[in-house]
Amino acid sequence: MCKWILTNGASAFSHLPCCCLLLLFLVSSVPVTCHDLGQDMLSPEATNSSSSSSSSFPSSFSSPSSAGRHVRSYNHLQGDVRKRKLYSYNKYFLKIEKNGKVSGTKKENCPFSILEITSVEIGVVAVKSIKSNYYLAMNKKGKVYGSKEFNSDCKLKERIEENGYNTYASLNWKHNGRQMFVALNGRGTTKRGQKTRRKNTSAHFLPMVVMS
């Protein structure tokens, strides 16, 4: 373009001063690209928002593998609460009497069999008789008893078995590596945890909704 201006276009611009011709020469020789114009035409807000959106995105969400699985937990006895009766496969309602004794009863209207099942953490519950205010517990030796205070013996792993019944195993105590379960025998008395197994129906309970 510069060559055209100086030769073919000389006659057309002969009336212009030399300084103007020099200015035209300089302007025509400056390279301008669409890419640079596109960048310059972006507003400061647009560039800032695009850069900030990418930089402020949490690194933990950059990929599914790095995010990790969030596990929901509950504070001490502040989780979901259910009012239930635990009806054993042997046809007894589990009860915790006012002296802390745990056993089974055939009476449907026994006030000590109305229980409050509270989620402590995922899959772990605390079971308390509303009437006696005792917690269902199992100690290290596998003895099932009622505890006035909530402690580590009161943490029970709740699981739904294949037959639709629930089992309740001690969270903290095992016997020779085996889980110990809350169970009622055919006479409605509790069994030692060492003598229980997951598949034994004596350890199976059906939670029944209590209508208030």
Rank of each mutant, 00 (worst) to 15 (best):
179 Q>P: 01
93 F>C: 05
114 I>K: 12
91 K>A: 15
129 S>D: 07
166 N>V: 07
125 V>K: 08
191 K>Q: 14
158 E>N: 03
176 N>E: 12
178 R>E: 12
185 N>F: 02
173 W>S: 10
176 N>R: 07
90 N>K: 12
150 F>I: 02
107 K>L: 15
118 T>F: 00
156 L>I: 02
153 D>M: 05
191 K>N: 11
183 A>H: 05
152 S>E: 12
186 G>Q: 13
148 K>G: 13
118 T>R: 02
158 E>A: 14
135 Y>M: 01
90 N>T: 13
129 S>M: 03
132 S>G: 05
101 K>A: 12
130 I>T: 11
175 H>K: 12
161 E>D: 14
93 F>K: 05
105 T>D: 10
99 N>V: 07
171 L>G: 02
108 E>W: 02
91 K>H: 15
126 A>F: 02
185 N>P: 08
116 E>C: 00
136 L>T: 01
112 F>T: 11
87 Y>G: 08
114 I>D: 10
188 G>M: 05
121 E>W: 03
152 S>T: 10
152 S>R: 08
98 K>W: 09
140 K>A: 13
126 A>D: 00
89 Y>T: 12
153 D>Y: 00
149 E>Y: 06
102 V>C: 07
98 K>Y: 08
93 F>I: 09
96 I>V: 15
192 R>Y: 06
172 N>E: 11
97 E>K: 11
138 M>F: 01
89 Y>D: 14
155 K>D: 03
104 G>P: 07
100 G>Q: 03
151 N>I: 03
84 R>Q: 14
113 S>I: 06
129 S>C: 04
108 E>V: 10
115 L>V: 04
148 K>N: 09
138 M>L: 02
140 K>C: 10
154 C>R: 01
162 E>L: 06
175 H>V: 10
89 Y>L: 07
92 Y>M: 11
145 Y>V: 07
106 K>P: 01
174 K>N: 11
151 N>Y: 00
155 K>F: 05
163 N>A: 08
108 E>I: 05
162 E>Y: 03
101 K>W: 04
129 S>I: 05
106 K>N: 10
141 K>M: 08
87 Y>C: 08
90 N>C: 03
134 Y>E: 04
182 V>Q: 13
102 V>W: 02
172 N>W: 03
161 E>M: 12
174 K>M: 13
128 K>H: 00
115 L>H: 00
108 E>C: 05
173 W>V: 01
85 K>Y: 05
197 R>N: 13
113 S>A: 15
197 R>W: 03
189 T>E: 13
92 Y>L: 13
192 R>S: 14
117 I>S: 01
105 T>R: 05
177 G>M: 02
91 K>Q: 15
198 R>A: 06
145 Y>K: 09
158 E>S: 14
149 E>S: 10
177 G>D: 11
135 Y>C: 03
161 E>P: 01
152 S>Q: 11
161 E>C: 09
188 G>E: 04
135 Y>I: 00
164 G>N: 15
190 T>K: 08
102 V>K: 05
156 L>S: 08
87 Y>E: 06
98 K>N: 14
131 K>H: 14
103 S>R: 11
165 Y>I: 04
105 T>L: 07
135 Y>W: 14
121 E>V: 00
193 G>P: 13
155 K>H: 06
103 S>A: 14
133 N>H: 04
100 G>P: 08
114 I>A: 08
155 K>S: 06
96 I>E: 09
91 K>G: 04
119 S>T: 09
188 G>H: 04
191 K>A: 10
139 N>Q: 06
124 V>S: 00
